[in-house]
């Protein structure tokens, strides 16, 4: 057995680097190809204005995707991101004074308190996710599926089919303002990306996230508190989603039911298209940035070219499928190497 392994490893050494970087190269190549394609196909695509557009468009998804990156790196999933975003956005509006024609039994409080209550709400929902997954032992897929419904339920109960428009000043500044023509919501995204990247790369907690995702059993046998790390990732994800929901409500100018429905798929797609492993342990914020750009460029670019708007949905689905194939394919290469290496 032993000599077969070594000869196999030697034969593929030249392509080993390329293959090991496949996870990072494939999404980046996709992004470049899309940029070239849309620049040629539409004169209105490659402009400064449009770049700013794209950046604004991906901001809400991006903030959610940062939190989701933590969870997916652990090898888990959070399906409640969009739902928690919606609920948190509605909570912050619920505690803000609305116009008289808005028929909601809301409780207006000071702006800072409304924000604090909204943050408490999303943290609480995240803690429930964490409790169900780690203490009770419900698979995160099912636990967060339930939370998706709970979030939708909270949203529905608070607005009762109505639409709220006002949010605290601080939230509307962050979500809808701009600094010297630059949208502040993009700055919020940038801040989340930087903090997320620094946390994952340079802190002890970040290392634990990668190790738990890479080999959960080994992490446990090294004395890492695996449940605590998983729980923390789920809470971080919920808080990111909550903040995305608040600035999102300000960005859209209204808070209502089902406002974020499409964002769950986009956030998961951004993380996975970027090349973060669905099995955990590989990837990071850098990958998520590329994934966000691919999705943003694709969504925006398809609007710039003459294309059946119904076909757009199908094309997005196909791109996501392609990314998943690459993701799993790369994983298989690695597990084969691991089997040979051991």
């Amino acid at each position: 057995m032993t000599f077969q392994q070594t000869s196999a490893a030697r034969g593929s050494k030249s392509s080993l680097f390329l293959r090991s970087q496949m996870r990072n190269i494939a999404p980046f190549a996709t992004l470049i190809l899309l940029l070239i394609f849309f620049s040629i196909a539409s004169p209105s695509f490659a402009t400064i204005d449009n770049a700013s557009n794209i950046l604004t468009q991906i901001s809400v998804t991006g903030i959610m995707a940062v939190g989701l990156t933590f969870v997916i790196l652990c090898g888990e999933i959070d399906l409640s991101v969009a739902s928690i975003a919606n609920a948190t956005g509605i909570v912050v509006a619920y505690f803000t004074l609305q116009e008289s024609y808005v028929n909601i039994a809301n409780i207006p409080v000071a702006g800072w308190l409304a924000v604090a209550l909204a943050l408490a709400a999303c943290t609480g929902l995240g803690l429930i996710n964490a409790f169900g997954t780690t203490v009770i032992g419900i698979p995160s897929f099912i636990m967060t599926l339930a939370m998706m419904q709970i979030g939708a339920g909270i949203s529905a109960l608070l607005v009762r089919g109505q639409i709220a428009y006002n949010v605290p000043d601080i939230v509307s500044t962050l979500g809808a303002g701009n600094v010297g023509g630059f949208p502040t919501i993009a700055l919020v995204l940038l801040a989340f990306l930087v903090v997320g990247h620094v946390t994952l790369t340079y802190t002890r907690f970040g290392r634990y996230i990668y190790m738990v995702g890479g080999n959960r059993e080994a992490a446990e046998y090294s004395g890492v508190n695996v449940k605590l790390i998983l729980g923390a990732a789920l809470v971080i994800c919920a808080v990111c989603s909550g903040i995305a929901g608040m600035v999102g409500v300000a960005h859209f100018g209204s808070a209502q039911q089902n406002e974020f429905d499409g964002y769950l798929l986009d956030a998961i797609a951004a993380v996975v298209v970027g090349g973060t492993s669905l099995f955990g342990g590989r990837g990071g914020i850098g990958n998520t940035i590329v994934g966000l750009c691919v999705l943003g460029v694709l969504n925006n670019g398809l609007d710039h070219i003459q294309i059946d708007s119904f076909l757009k949905i199908l094309i997005r689905g196909l791109i996501l499928l392609a990314a998943l194939i690459v993701n799993v394919y790369v994983q298989n290469i690695r597990s084969v190497e691991r089997a040979e290496g051991a």
Partner: peptide
């Protein structure tokens, strides 16, 4: 089973340090 103790894709030093990270530092690696 060594497989349940070690991280095969990670460098040796990360494998060694994982159980003592808390003693090296609280927050920053």
């Amino acid at each position: 089973n060594r497989r349940s103790m070690l991280f095969y894709e990670q460098p040796v030093y990360k494998n060694v340090s994982i159980s003592i990270l808390g003693r090296i530092s609280r927050l920053w690696l």
